[in-house]
Design a protein around this nucleic acid. Structure first.
Length: 772
DNA sequence: CGGAGCGGGATTTTT
DNA sequence: TCCCGCTCCG
């Protein structure tokens, strides 16, 4: 068991930043609040940083400041982030401010990376060996399937995914099987949930493995069960900093609390930075309450609000602020800017998603002609299926784009396969890895064979490859399988020896070659094959800088993102979630329709909390824009192959009228969905105006006389323009572009109910049909 | 063992 | 509508 080295007293180094002539240049240019966030070093501090207010700057400058003042050495600072990307950026920026001393900050990283580091030092205390493997979601699911099988549970009725989700949720709350409240196991497999969780944990220990949740849960357990070790870390970390505090979940919160615990009378130097309004990860366990509760949790905490926005123009900011003000569960901030008001954000109604894509495409082409950089343009969608339409359109237009977020590098099958080979070499007991590649490429080692290995391995309590080693010497397997398996084991032996001689990247190349893996893709005639081979090359290249294979695998299990390619300027297409933390000159927000945004499922499953999270997501979207912001909603959207008539999002009603322009569709669809929304559909779709948000919005209106954006103004417009007698009458045969031929069932103003021959009864605008 | 054919499900995503 | 995973059959 590795002991924690005692914290060393710090003496500023002669050449260090602290002794320079102008030691605090890095403070220049901070506004008073930012500066307070940097300089309030003692005791707990919560920096509530609105979107675009310089949050990262405060965090990084604060670290530089601690180092420069000699308050702590870099290795006595704990700085936690959620993503590797954030950790990397933070490190770069600190190095930039404080110089190379900061390069060595060993405790700057993600919750998971730091926990892993701690866990490896004391693994025995939680029943693991320090070489434990980290399982990703895929491995996790496969392991759970095995557990279900062992317990004779029908994984049709009780999908492994559901249990994985449940176990994750428990782990997010820091609950071990023994701590889960009895009632909560009921929901799964007739009350076997907790038992299955325990079984799964036992299997993990057998495999010397931890899933992502374990990294934190086990670290927490380590701290709780070993006060001396915890005390060592508490002493070591003189300053604690947490980025995106609003995203912390239960375990992370407890983990932090333990590390920030102090002797009575002392206060932890804990600085949490976050924005409750940008908490959008509740669905994966993040608990906004953590940030809302900060002052109670850490009495005497200083709360600093960063409200000066450096990103967006006035109208954009006002729009975002007005929307988010309708959330109840928030600490409340008022963003302001000294910048100009700029153009008002626009809301455009379009007929369907196709027109939406066409319209945005044309808009972008116009910007392009005006010499705007495509890198500064983003389309942010609620759900990834929305992306396809834009991709198709942009391909047609020849408009360069990039999809951000899609399947990440490490999630690609070829990368996971290659890694599985390497894991088998480095960790002969890694059963999940072995299972993955035993028959990839196809070599005739199918499920039946693996099952035999499994059965034997379970009885003998040994890993698969060891079982294989034994079974190839017996008659258990058919000759052909035995031969193949023996050859494969021989390959692995050879590769293990090779690992002693060759650098890991050359080893990887050899393995991919000799195993026939590269060959498999070379023979593949499908479109993706070339890309996959390219990815494999990229993987091999990326291994070079590591000292050895183990170091590479450790890195990859936690930091599996690939370097982003720069190159040609492109429009970015991504989800709203992926956009957090980014900014663009121009932002398009398509799909603002009830059901899609706010997403129906969010409302169904989370109720008001779900709605508020969706609204925060909307807020994140709005605040990504620096100068141009364009919202869209379509009247019709194809969801799962079915055309659905949709209503504009209630969030559109919640925007401030004085700061938003309503634009007609540029494609002659007239007033888009406004009419259905305001009139015909009001009853059918239990109106958004009944929502608390809407009612609050009504009350919030500062100047009652001013024509508020929302139904009033819109009705006015719409009434003036569209209420006219339709020239169609009941019984007419009409032709509709999307739905084909049909007979009018009823006429109500300018909207028609039509029984289409193929599409059934639909409500459509008269302007979209013609006499058949 | 491996390909074809069928049924169910289909937000958001990091580690 | 489309995609994935499982089952069934050769």
């Amino acid at each position: 068991m590795a002991a924690v080295e005692p914290a060393q007293p710090y003496t500023p180094r002669p050449g260090g930043l602290a002794s320079r002539a102008t030691p605090q240049r890095y403070l220049d240019g901070l506004n008073p609040e930012q500066r307070e966030g940097v300089e309030s070093l003692d005791g707990p501090v919560l920096v509530l940083a609105g979107a675009g207010t310089g949050k990262t700057r405060v965090l990084t400058t604060r670290i530089a400041h601690i180092i420069a003042l000699g308050r702590a050495q870099p290795h006595q600072i704990l700085a936690v982030t959620f993503t590797n990307k954030a950790a990397r950026e933070m490190r770069e920026r600190v190095v930039h401010l404080a110089g190379p001393v900061a390069e060595g900050m060993p405790w700057l990283g993600t919750f998971h990376a730091i926990s892993t580091k701690i866990l490896r030092r004391h693994a025995e205390l939680v029943g693991l060996k320090s070489s434990f493997t980290i399982l990703d979601t895929d491995d996790q699911i496969r392991l759970i399937k095995q557990v279900l099988q062992a317990e004779n549970i029908d994984d049709k009725r009780w999908p492994a995914r559901a249990l994985a989700f449940q176990i994750d949720a428990w782990k997010n709350r820091g609950l071990t099987p023994g701590q889960v409240p009895k009632g909560e196991g009921e929901a799964y497999a007739n009350g076997k949930g907790i038992q299955l969780y325990a079984h799964y944990q036992a299997r993990l220990k057998q495999l010397n493995a931890a899933d992502f949740g374990d990294l934190l849960v086990e670290c927490l357990r380590l701290f709780k069960e070993n006060p001396d070790i915890l005390a060592d870390y508490q002493r070591r970390f003189r300053y604690l900093l947490v980025d995106e505090y609003q995203d912390t979940n239960g375990v992370q919160y407890m983990w932090l609390r333990l590390l920030a615990q102090t002797k009575p009378g002392e206060r932890a130097n804990l600085c949490c930075v976050g924005d409750d309004d940008q908490s959008i990860y509740g669905w994966r366990g993040a608990d906004v309450d953590n940030i809302l509760r900060f002052e109670q949790d850490f009495p005497g905490a200083k709360v600093i609000r960063l409200e000066r926005n450096y990103r967006s123009t006035g109208h954009i900011l006002a729009t975002a602020s007005h929307l988010i003000a309708q959330n109840q569960g928030r600490l409340g901030k008022t963003l302001f800017t000294d910048g100009e008001n700029g153009d008002k954000p626009s809301v455009t109604g379009v007929w369907d998603s196709e027109e939406e894509a066409r319209s945005i495409g044309e808009d972008i082409e116009q910007l392009q002609r005006a010499k705007a950089s495509l890198d500064e343009i983003a389309i942010l969608v609620r759900a990834s299926f929305q992306m396809r339409e834009f991709e198709e359109r942009f391909v047609t237009l020849g408009l360069p784009y990039r999809v951000i977020g899609g399947p990440r590098f490490y999630e690609r099958a070829e990368i996971r396969d290659a890694l599985a080979y390497l894991r088998c070499v480095a960790q002969p007991a890694d059963d999940l890895a072995f299972e993955r590649i035993a028959n990839v490429p196809k070599r005739g080692l199918g499920d039946a064979t693996i099952q035999i290995l499994h059965d034997y391995g379970r009885r003998a309590q040994i890993p698969l490859m060891q079982s294989a080693q034994i079974l190839v010497e017996t008659e258990e397997l058919k000759p052909k399988q035995r031969q193949t398996l023996r050859a494969l084991l021989g390959d692995f032996d050879r590769w293990r020896q090779l690992a002693e001689q060759k650098p890991q990247h050359e080893l990887a190349e050899t393995i991919l070659e000799e195993s026939g893996y590269t060959d498999m893709w070379q023979k593949d005639r499908t479109a993706e094959a070339a890309g996959r081979l390219e990815n494999l090359k990229e993987l091999v290249r990326s291994m070079e800088p590591f000292p050895d294979l183990t170091a590479f695998l450790e890195h990859i299990s936690l930091v599996m993102d690939s370097a982003e390619k720069g190159g040609e300027a492109r429009v970015s297409i991504m989800t709203l979630h992926a956009a957090k933390g980014l900014e663009f000159e121009t932002v398009y927000l398509p799909g603002w329709e009830e059901g899609l945004f706010p997403h129906q499922r969010s409302l169904d499953e989370q109720g008001r909390a779900g709605l508020e999270e969706e609204r925060r997501l909307a807020y994140v979207g709005l605040t990504r824009a620096k100068r141009r912001l364009k919202l869209y909603f379509a009247t019709n959207r194809r969801i799962r192959g079915l055309w659905q008539t949709t209503v504009p999002s209630r969030f559109i009603d919640e925007l401030p009228g004085d700061h938003v322009d309503v634009v007609e569709s540029s494609h002659g669809s007239g007033y888009g969905g406004y009419t259905p929304s305001r009139f015909s559909n009001m009853d059918r779709f239990a109106s958004p105006y009944a929502t608390p948000g809407w009612q609050r919005a009504q009350q919030n209106r500062s100047t009652p006389s001013a024509t508020a954006y929302g139904p009033k103004l819109l009705e006015g417009e719409v009434i003036a323009k569209t209420i006219h007698a339709s020239h169609f009458s009941t019984g007419d045969r009409v032709l509709h572009l999307k739905f084909g031929n049909g007979t009018i069932a009823s006429v109500d103003g300018n909207k028609l109910t039509v029984d289409f021959d193929r599409a059934g009864r639909k409500m459509v605008m008269d302007s979209f049909v013609e006499t058949a």
